[in-house]
């Protein structure tokens, strides 16, 4: 672990990503103490207030403080990101590894299943799942998790296929190591790199998917401070009150960016072959 940290520390961009991610997490945890206003409190006389000392990032059409809503929104975004991406990562990797390792009809069955899921547009598939499960934040996370599972399954499958016939796997088989152990100790660690990159990308997609579904009324209720809802609502006032949409947009961009660069750095740090090269 200390080794991984040492590697990561050398990568300045990854460190800045990590730094911003930590800030995001701190924001989410300490939201009730640091937010200057109640994110739900409406103020009819302070509607469409421009960014000022009273409201650093201005107020929206109901006079709610945007900074406070963004701080509270980090909770929803992080929660959706972690849980839905975690779900698709575990499920997808499991499907991909099993499909590629056992091959033949197992592979055919699992691959066709993921192909079918792939053939639907992301949002449409999420809508169908949400329609079946009913609107709620939990169901939204399940839906987003299921929608992104095939991506992980496909990446894991490709990654495993490329190393499955490696000599060291054959060596392990020749020593009598069980299939389960080969998958866990030899195949998984060596196919992690592309999956970790995909985690960071999916994190961004998950945050956006949450926004889209919430906008369509299928996620969290419209008064909940979620970056996606704020962005969607704010775009109606882009010409008169740009701050309503722009600041949540910046928040999403920053969050997505920090996860991406952190994932990139993590991928390099996890690869022992890159160890002695300066980055």
């Amino acid at each position: 672990m200390s080794d991984l940290w040492y590697q990561l520390k050398k990568n300045k961009i990854a460190m800045s990503g990590l730094f911003m991610t930590i800030i995001l997490i701190i924001l989410a945890i300490t939201a009730p103490w640091i937010a200057p206003y109640d994110p739900y409190e409406m103020a009819p006389d302070a509607r469409f207030a421009e960014p000022s000392l009273a409201h650093f990032l201005g107020t929206d059409q109901f006079g709610r403080d945007i900074l406070s809503r963004i701080i509270y929104g980090s909770r929803i975004s992080l929660q959706v990101g972690i849980i839905s991406v975690g779900l698709s990562f575990v499920l997808g990797t499991l499907i991909g590894v099993v499909a590629a390792y056992y091959g033949k009809w197992v592979d055919a069955a699992l691959s066709r299943l993921t192909d079918v899921m792939f053939s639907f547009p992301d949002i449409l598939l999420a809508l169908v799942i949400m329609a079946i499960l009913g609107p709620s934040l939990t169901n939204l996370m399940i839906a987003v998790g299921i929608v992104y599972t095939p991506i992980f399954a496909r990446i894991a499958r490709g990654s495993v296929l490329s190393i499955k016939n490696s000599l060291f796997i054959e060596a392990a088989r020749s020593m009598g190591v069980s299939n389960l152990k080969i998958m866990w100790k030899h195949i998984l660690p060596n196919s992690m790199a592309p999956l970790i990159v995909q985690v960071t990308l999916s994190f961004a997609f998950a945050i956006l998917a949450e926004a889209a579904l919430s906008f369509l009324g299928l996620g969290v209720s419209p008064d909940t401070p979620s970056w996606g809802i704020m962005l969607s609502e704010g775009k109606s006032w882009m010409e008169s009150a740009w701050w309503i949409a722009v600041f949540p947009g910046i928040a999403i961009t920053l969050a997505v960016f920090s996860f991406n660069v952190m994932g990139d750095g993590l991928r390099d740090a996890l690869d022992p072959r890159l160890k002695n090269e300066s980055s």
């Binding site: 060291f168 060596a171 030899h186 060596n190």
Partner: peptide, 8 residues
């Protein structure tokens, strides 16, 4: 070069 798992 190929018969040893690079991550072990």
């Amino acid at each position: 070069f190929a018969s040893l798992n690079p991550r072990m």
